[in-house]
């Protein structure tokens, strides 16, 4: 058991198994939709977790990249005649480029100062999306052409479940490998102590920038999926509240735990659906549940439960 747990592949196989087995329990297409949303958000959260949990850099503006990805697949096909899949890639490249340009100066900031700088970046994206109505349709948003792959028009929730699920497993494995790579190890060193890493000869600035770009591209792809899946996009996708939601998913699931990213996304996508039975109390309850989770599982759900399990075994 112990050796099996230690192998790198196990979590990936487990997650893939979840993606495949879960639909057997789905009573309707609505559950496919929720499942697809979970994997789409989990993808963005994995990226953000690389940045927050491993490199120790907070971003309160990550929805900005979600927005760039989402509007790429909306604007690309309509104004430039690019197929959706190409627009998705273009969006990811654009996000990476923006992350490169923005990241260079602001990643030098520390802690809360980095938080406010990224927050400002996210707001800038949202403001531009909302103001440039000629391109984006303004605050009411614009409709997004359906994704077409080899003359197959992807529209149903179950098709999106499989696409999002597969991509998530891919992103998950990529992230795990990244963490085991030399880059990943130096990132964790940066997380522990930036000064010490510098002394050890790690190029802190460029490592941080690399991970920022990667996490931006994860978010961008997730944003593109979200827009294609919904068929309509509004500037809310890049808003402050979305950024906070992504951070909440990371922290709730567990910073530095890739599996935690999935758990965090599950909790915050499913919870609002469950809480609807409480009608006007749903907001208050959501806040309360977030607080209770953070107080009692302060390292996040997955790391805290893992620690508890470890304790029981001894």
């Amino acid at each position: 058991m112990r050796t099996l747990l230690d192998t790198r592949l196990l979590p990936a196989i487990a997650v893939a198994a979840i993606v495949i087995v879960l639909p057997w329990f789905f009573p309707s297409a609505f559950y496919y939709r929720i499942g697809a949303l979970v994997f789409i958000f989990a993808l963005a959260v994995v990226g953000l977790n690389l940045l927050m949990g491993f490199a120790g850099q907070v971003s309160l503006g990550h929805a900005g990249f979600l927005g760039i990805g989402a509007y790429s697949v909306a604007i690309g096909p309509v104004y430039f005649g690019m197929p959706s899949w190409l627009s998705l890639f273009a969006g990811a490249v654009l996000s990476g480029l923006v992350a490169f340009l923005v990241g260079r100066p602001i990643l030098r900031l520390k802690g809360h100062y980095l938080a406010v700088a990224t927050l400002g970046f996210g707001l800038l994206v949202a403001i531009v999306l909302s103001n440039e109505a000629g391109w984006t349709g303004g605050p009411d948003g614009m409709s997004v052409p359906k994704l077409t792959l080899f003359s197959w028009s992807v529209r149903s929730a179950d098709a999106w479940y499989w696409i999002a699920g597969t991509t998530f497993v891919g992103g998950f494995i990529l992230a795990l490998n990244l963490m085991q790579s030399p880059t990943g190890r130096s990132l964790q060193a940066i997380h522990d102590s930036e000064i010490a890493s510098l002394v050890l000869g790690i190029d802190v600035a460029s490592k941080k920038l690399t991970i920022f770009i990667i996490s931006a591209m994860y978010a961008s792809v997730a944003g593109s999926y979200l827009a294609l899946f919904n068929g309509h996009v509004t500037p809310d996708v890049a808003g402050f509240l979305r950024s906070i939601e992504l951070v909440a998913m990371v922290v709730l699931g567990g910073m530095g735990s890739i599996v935690g990213s999935l758990v965090g996304a599950i909790v915050l996508v499913v919870l609002p659906q469950v809480l609807t039975v409480f009608h006007e109390y749903e907001q208050a309850l959501l806040g309360l549940i977030v607080m209770v989770f953070m107080i009692f599982l302060r390292r996040g759900i997955v790391p805290s439960l893992a620690a508890i399990l470890q304790g029981w075994r001894k």
Binding site: S28, A29, F30, R33, I34, L37, G141, A157, L226, N230, G231, H232, V233, T234, D236, V237, L241, P272, Q273, T276, E282
Partner: peptide
């Protein structure tokens, strides 16, 4: 309650139809 978010509205629409 969509909370003012079009994405949430879309999810609830599916829920109304399917569930």
């Amino acid at each position: 309650d969509d909370g003012g978010s079009a994405d949430n509205a879309r999810t609830f629409a599916t829920r109304l139809i399917e569930e």
